[in-house]
């Protein structure tokens, strides 16, 4: 097999993990948000008089659900731009 030095190996693993994590972190909130929107629309059709209330609640809860994807993104950003493991092999400064 190839002889990879540790720095390259960590970089490679980081990139692969970042891709996989972003896919998983994007799919899950998308499915759950779709379900939330579906239920809210059903409620709006059934009771149009509370549509405004439902819309406000829907926007807030969608933003809260979106947060999980944002957390995954933040972890990936740390891995890609400020990887604490890579600094062990390429000391800064």
């Amino acid at each position: 097999m190839w002889e990879l030095d540790p720095g390259t190996l960590v970089t490679l693993v980081t990139i692969v993990v970042a891709g996989i994590a972003m896919v998983a972190g994007a799919i899950t909130p998308a499915i759950v948000e779709g379900r939330a929107v579906l239920r809210a629309l059903e409620g709006m059709v059934r009771q149009p008089e509370i549509a405004g209330d439902l819309r406000n609640t829907l926007i807030v809860s969608l933003a809260l659900l979106e947060t999980t994807a944002i957390y995954v993104l933040l972890v990936i950003l740390i891995l890609l731009f400020a990887n604490p493991l890579l600094e062990r092999f390429f000391p800064v400064g």
Partner: peptide, 16 residues
Amino acid sequence: VSMSLRLFGNIIATEI
């Protein structure tokens, strides 16, 4: 923590 990270994450994601 979650309030600050939510705002920061959304803004920096758009910037990137």
